[in-house]
Amino acid sequence: MSVEAPASAIEEQAAQWFSRRQDGPLDPAGEAAFQTWLQQNEAHANAYDDMQLLWADCDLLTRPALESDKFVVLPVVSARRSRFRSMLTLAAALLLAIGMALGTSWYAQPTYQLNASADQQQLRTLQLQDGSEVVLNLGAQVHVRYFRDRREVELSAGEAFFSVSPDATKPFLISVGDAEVRVVGTRFNVRRSDQGVAVAVEQGTVQVDPGTQGLAPQLLQVGEVAEVDYRRGLVRNSELPTNEIGSWRTGMLIFRDRSLGELAQELSRYLDRPVLVGDAQLAAKRVSGSLDIHQPELFLQALPLLLPVQISRTDDGRVMLQPR
């Protein structure tokens, strides 16, 4: 013995199925469930047909009456359509839900997208839609998406220098792994590495959220640097002359008080092969100097003059730095 659902319940089910199908094609499982519901009872099919007809009626409706209007001309509908006028309240809710869903979907769609990378031979400059500029260091990769209320960039690899056009209504958000950098209009450098994220500000103010419990957000001013070290669970703050921030854009990387481990990651990118430090104490040593990013091999050969290291190379091309 089967129990037939009340008409109001069937109408609600029909409205739900109609709303889901308006939002886009169902997946195979969803479509199979819909067909099963449709075939369970003739009332189901009739209620769904009524929903489709009512939706079509929306195209026939005139604009709302104005105070100056003496009368409103209503569309002529068939006798069959008139029998489900009792569904208008439910249909109004359905139309509102669908409208909100479509509006949300429209609002969530990017208005501008760009995926770009720089090869190992030359830097790359990107001019974005709003006048912002991004300079990609060798091997860097970015994914840009602009929305109606924000601008988003993902730095998925390497290093980039950002010159952001001011727009208080659309903050500029850069995701770097777990970290997020937030600005409105400014100039700053962002470096991503295996160990963490480093942000240095040349102009304006930048907020850096490490995105990890226990590491507080950092508000950086001109000349300030924040290095987020996820392995050690800390943020190192320092200052740099503004002419050294993003110095690699000139082809000459200037580094101050950088750990050898971090420098090895820089060399890995410029050499396009892994540079590994085989000793933890050696990796922690701080070093300052300059590096021609187009001739990293020359710097590597000179490294034993700066630090007590010896260089070896493996058969698979890796470079090993060991204590001397």
Results as ranks from 00 to 15, higher is better:
Leu155Thr: 10
Ala157Gly: 08
Ala157His: 12
Gly158Tyr: 03
Gly158Asn: 06
Glu159Tyr: 02
Glu159Met: 04
Ala160Cys: 04
Ala160Asp: 10
Ala160Tyr: 06
Ala160Arg: 03
Phe161Ile: 10
Phe161Gly: 10
Phe162Ala: 04
Phe162Pro: 05
Phe162Ser: 05
Ser163Arg: 13
Ser163Phe: 06
Val164Trp: 13
Val164Pro: 13
Ser165Ala: 15
Ser165His: 12
Ser165Val: 14
Ser165Leu: 14
Pro166Tyr: 13
Pro166Gly: 10
Asp167Val: 09
Asp167Lys: 02
Phe172Ile: 14
Leu173Val: 15
Ile174Trp: 01
Ile174Arg: 04
Ile174Lys: 03
Ile174Asp: 02
Ser175Gln: 07
Val176Gly: 03
Val176Glu: 06
Gly177Arg: 07
Gly177Tyr: 07
Ala179Cys: 06
Glu180Ser: 12
Val181Gly: 04
Val181Tyr: 00
Arg182Tyr: 05
Arg182Val: 07
Arg182Trp: 10
Val183Cys: 04
Val183Arg: 01
Val184Cys: 05
Val184Ser: 08
Val184Pro: 00
Gly185Met: 09
Phe188Gly: 01
Asn189Met: 00
Val190Ile: 09
Arg191Trp: 00
Arg191Ser: 01
Ser193Thr: 04
Ser193Val: 00
Ser193Asp: 04
Asp194Trp: 13
Gln195Val: 15
Gln195Tyr: 12
Gly196Asp: 11
Gly196His: 15
Gly196Phe: 11
Ala198Arg: 10
Ala200Arg: 07
Glu202Arg: 10
Gln203Pro: 07
Thr205Gly: 07
Thr205Gln: 14
Val206Glu: 01
Val206Trp: 01
Val206Gln: 00
Gln207Ala: 07
Gln207Asp: 06
Val208Tyr: 02
Asp209His: 08
Pro210Val: 08
Pro210Asp: 01
Gly211Arg: 02
Thr212Glu: 14
Thr212Met: 12
Gln213His: 12
Gln213Asn: 15
Gln213Asp: 11
Leu215His: 07
Leu215Gly: 03
Ala216Cys: 05
Ala216Asn: 15
Ala216Asp: 08
Ala216Leu: 13
Gln218Ser: 05
Gln218Asp: 03
Leu219Glu: 11
Leu220Asp: 00
Leu220Thr: 00
Val222Ala: 14
Gly223Val: 11
Glu224Cys: 09
Val225Leu: 15
Val225Tyr: 15
Ala226Ile: 14
